[in-house]
Amino acid sequence: MSRPAWLPRLWPLLPSFVALLLTSLLLLAFGASPPLAFGAIWEGAFGNQDRLLTTVAFWIPLMLSSLGLLISFRAGLWNIGIEGQFILGAIGASWVALSLQLPAPLQISLQMLAAMAAGALWAGLAGVLKRWGVHEIFGGLALNNLAIILTNYLIAGPWQPPEGGSFRGTAPFHADALLPLVGATRFSVVALGLALLAFGLVVLALRNSAWGLRLKALGRNPRSALLLGVSSRRETLLAMAFCGALAGLGGAVRVLSWFDSLRQSISGGIGYLALMVVILAAFRLLWTPLVAFFFAAVLSGSVVLQLRTQLHSSLGNILTGVLVLLVLLFGNLDSLRAWWAEWRAGRRRS
């Protein structure tokens, strides 16, 4: 009716554009030149091969977590506990790295499996709590804090480096435990391969599998889904575990390539960032990796932005924050769908 028909087409470019505008105003208020600043971000993210690879290296765990969230969101679950699942993945991988010494391929595979199992377990806990009446948001938040406490305990206690616990992290893992890196960057081809594989798997699960269809039914209408024979308990647990496994894999990539040991803030909020990515992507499959990449680029580029302009150090965070805020302000997906349908109907008539 009165809503502009071009709006949904531009999604999510429109909020991005408005966010850019707002950030520019903010930059002007700080007395900095917006083109210079955005140029710095661009250069920081893509300026040379090392920077591009660093951006990709940051993108991989973010992407893995976002993919996991696509699954849990499809089932109607707000898996805010993804941060903790990510951390548990890091812990799982570290456990294998610190306790075994095997040939690299075997060692790394085992670490990845342990990470996925740990993430899935942590997510499953949130799922079980949900069954006992604890909403997954609150259960998830509690488990996130527990994961942080567990990390701190491990790095200050049983896994402290030989020179003494410093709360900073464990001693670096042995070389066979770490992912082979490209040049001086933190980029690992193996990790990229895993991320792409995970993407394929999630596309397959959501688009083509019977399980994906059950999740869709569950997410849209759990009561109808039950009457159609979908077990909400089972699918909730499975969806959580799947998501947790992917987040755990992200955590493993983080310890085994970005860092070389289990650190105090191993995630630094990548799980929460992934939530924003998926919301900004409006829960859509193909947009998710792109939006995740955009986030990675902006954050990665803001390192150079800070060095160049000596401006506020969290300008990148502000940009992404403003973006998500605008997306939320622009309304949720359902109203967009309605606009979209209206627009298409209008086009068919004329």
Partner: peptide, 8 residues
């Protein structure tokens, strides 16, 4: 890593 997970 808490404030700047993206930076090394």
């Amino acid at each position: 890593p808490a404030d700047k997970p993206e930076a090394t």
